[in-house]
Design a protein around this nucleic acid. Structure first.
Length: 338
DNA sequence: CGAATTTGACCCGCGC
DNA sequence: GCGCGGGTCAAATTCG
């Protein structure tokens, strides 16, 4: 509801905010013609990494920050508190969650921060929320009454992803639990929940009505477990994901390539394996604007609320982004970039 | 046969 | 207070 609205706003912002290089980046995120069409045949899940790999990874399109517009001072507990033991630290987990935006856009929602800082929220685990609703609503209502506040919500991150498939493979296993028609959009919104018992992470997937090629994925919550993919394979630092690291920039028609076919073997958690245990620092370093958009895979840009600061913001975000990339991308790659 | 998906119904919050 | 829309549940169905 709210988030969606925000997302809409973000979309609007993406198109409206004058980027420093707006001339190069139309709001429509042009991609080589037929780039995705070529992938049309393969309806299987496309790994984020795969998609990501199609573009310059080191110019990763995704950025994120959690600047609570109203509480930039105090980062959300969940976000700032590196879980002592949890394999995937909050941020990392989120990062792992992070659909490395396949081809173009990504954004984060402010809701994350706003909700994360709600008192009492920290005491409620992700799983609790889900189970609670499941077990009995009366108790939920009671709790609500007792607390006299709205239902707790997990931090959210919204990503806009240009993809042919709705449900992007991110390394975690998701179970669909609902689907709703979206108002003013011909495309339905799907609701997924992490299949891991104790993990209450949810995500919503919907297509942008404005640009059907764009899939908006909203993650809510943080995984409390390592990625099944990682668990399945090695949990030790892997060599750079071949896809991402060695794949040359996508050919104009790259999506139809065998790459897509192998997509299911490529999961974001691979990326997660690069996530350092120390939490990523998503705390607002400058402005509280949570909104970040990259309108082109080759350009990572943070959109601040104030376009006038576009350049500065870009620089700032570059730093921030760099920090993020440091965590997400093997230094080797970054060197190449540098 | 178990797991996952589908889908209609229900609940809740919010705006008018 | 009411209606609308988002989010979730859970039975039915499908799939592997």
């Amino acid at each position: 509801m709210m988030v969606e609205k925000r997302e809409d706003e973000m979309e609007a912002s993406a198109a409206a905010i004058p980027l420093p290089f707006s001339s190069q980046i139309p709001s429509t995120f042009p991609l080589p013609g037929g780039f995705f069409d070529a992938n049309g045949g393969d309806k299987g899940s496309v790994g984020f990494l795969e998609l990501l790999g199609l573009r310059d990874f080191h110019q990763s399109p995704f950025l994120f920050e959690l600047p609570p517009p109203t509480s930039a001072v105090e980062p959300p507990p969940a976000m700032s508190d590196p879980p002592p033991r949890l394999p995937p630290p909050a941020e990392s987990s989120d990062a792992a969650n992070f659909p490395a935006t396949p081809s173009s856009i990504s954004s984060s929602s402010t809701e994350a921060a706003v909700n994360a800082i709600k008192p009492g929220a920290s005491s409620i685990t992700n799983g609790d929320e889900g189970e609670q609703a499941k077990t009995n609503r009366t108790s939920k209502e009671e709790e609500k009454k007792n607390k006299g506040q709205k239902r707790q919500r997990e931090p959210r991150f919204a990503f806009k992803t240009r993809s042919e498939v709705d449900h992007l493979e991110d390394g975690y296993r998701w179970r669909k639990y609902g689907q709703k028609a979206v108002k003013n959009s011909p495309y339905p919104r799907s609701y997924y929940r992490c299949t891991s018992a104790a993990c209450g992470v949810k995500k919503r997937v919907e297509r942008s009505s404005e640009d059907p090629a764009v899939v908006v994925t909203t993650y809510e919550g943080q995984h409390t477990h390592p990625s099944p993919v990682l668990a399945r394979g090695t949990h030790q630092p892997l060599p750079p994901p071949p896809l991402v690291l060695s794949e040359p920039p996508p050919p104009p028609l790259g999506f139809g390539s065998p790459l897509s076919v192998r997509s299911k073997d490529v999961h974001l958690p691979l990326l997660g394996s690069y996530l350092p245990l120390p939490p990523l620092d998503f705390r607002p370093m400058t402005a509280p604007q949570p909104l970040m958009l990259t309108s082109d895979p080759t350009t990572a840009v943070a959109i601040s609320g104030d376009p006038r600061h576009g350049c500065n913001r870009t620089a700032e975000v570059s730093i921030r982004d760099h920090g993020l990339l440091q965590d997400l991308i093997p230094s080797k790659i970054r060197k190449e970039e540098l």
